[in-house]
């Protein structure tokens, strides 16, 4: 099945009313056009406020957009549905549900009965490496393990597209690298289309086929970069290759220009 995502001139303006007639308009996204191929891994980087999270939420259907067109596999995107799934930075697990019940909630929502859900849930718990933790509650797990649950919850509904909103942003550096590698393995196996948002240039280059650089106010695509690093990337030192270093430096320079000198050091 072809899972191509097409965005054409997507625009979004947030209007805040501070009481009375005074309006505060913020152009979050302006004429964003993008095509993501089937099974492609695309990352979006950009300064805070460039609208990258807004873009992802629009694709998921969590918020409406004002103008333009978005299609997945030729079908226009509307309210959230199970052809796409989202992984959140804050994990968003339900604290009163065990790992297994959190992973199964998508299937529960679509009306699948418990007996049918069980083996599917079990399979994905194993894929993300949480076998043995089925009946643990989220507060008993580390951040990395919680996000594995977040990932399994989305994989369980078998979506064509996985949207990831800074999924590893809340994790420590070591856990983060481990999760990146495992994400690549899972992606390699499951053949999903992924749109991945991150603050880390390093993470974007390491994971992606293409890196989209966005600029702020209004949120627009500034540049699209192809990452031609050989896959699989977990069995050699990707970060040590000249191409990796070069791409990283290039993106860093772009973002610094955009932020006009008020920037933090590269990486994240």
């Amino acid at each position: 099945m072809e899972n191509k995502i097409v965005l054409r001139d997507v625009s979004k303006t947030f209007v805040k009313r501070n009481g009375g007639a005074k309006e505060n308009r913020v152009d979050a996204l302006k004429d964003v056009s993008l095509e993501v191929a089937d099974q492609e891994f695309v990352s979006i980087v950009g300064p805070s406020g460039c609208g990258k999270t807004t873009l992802l939420r629009i694709i998921d259907g969590l918020i409406p957009y004002d103008r333009g067109e978005i299609t997945i596999n030729g079908r226009p995107v509307g309210a959230p549905a199970q052809d796409r799934g989202m992984v959140f930075q804050t994990f968003g697990l339900l604290p009163w549900r065990t790992v297994a019940d959190n992973v199964g909630i998508g299937l529960e929502i679509s009306g699948m009965e418990l007996q049918k859900r069980k083996p599917i849930v079990q399979r994905w718990i194993e894929v993300v490496g949480l076998a043995g933790f089925e009946s643990h509650y989220p507060h008993e797990l580390s951040g990395g393990m919680q996000q594995r649950v977040g990932l399994a919850r989305v994989l369980a509904i078998n979506p064509a597209v996985i949207l990831m909103d800074e999924p590893f942003g809340a994790l420590d550096a070591q856990t983060r690298e481990l999760m990146q590698e495992e994400l690549l393995r899972i992606w390699n196996q499951e053949k999903k289309t992924v749109i991945f948002i991150t603050h880390s240039i390093d993470e974007a280059v390491y994971l992606s086929d293409r890196v989209i650089v966005m600029s702020a106010r209004p949120g627009q695509i500034a540049e699209v970069l192809n990452v031609r690093l050989k896959r699989p990337r977990w069995n050699y030192d990707v970060r040590g290759t000249p191409e990796f270093t070069e791409l990283r430096a290039h993106i860093w320079k772009m973002l610094r220009q955009d932020r006009a000198g008020v920037a933090a050091p590269p990486g994240d």
Partner: peptide, 20 residues
């Protein structure tokens, strides 16, 4: 942060009320 992910999975308003 609790409601969003469940809404993202396509839950109806009623399901969100019951499950979250």
């Amino acid at each position: 942060e609790l409601v969003e992910p469940v809404r993202s999975l396509g839950a109806t308003q009623r399901q969100i009320f019951q499950k979250v």
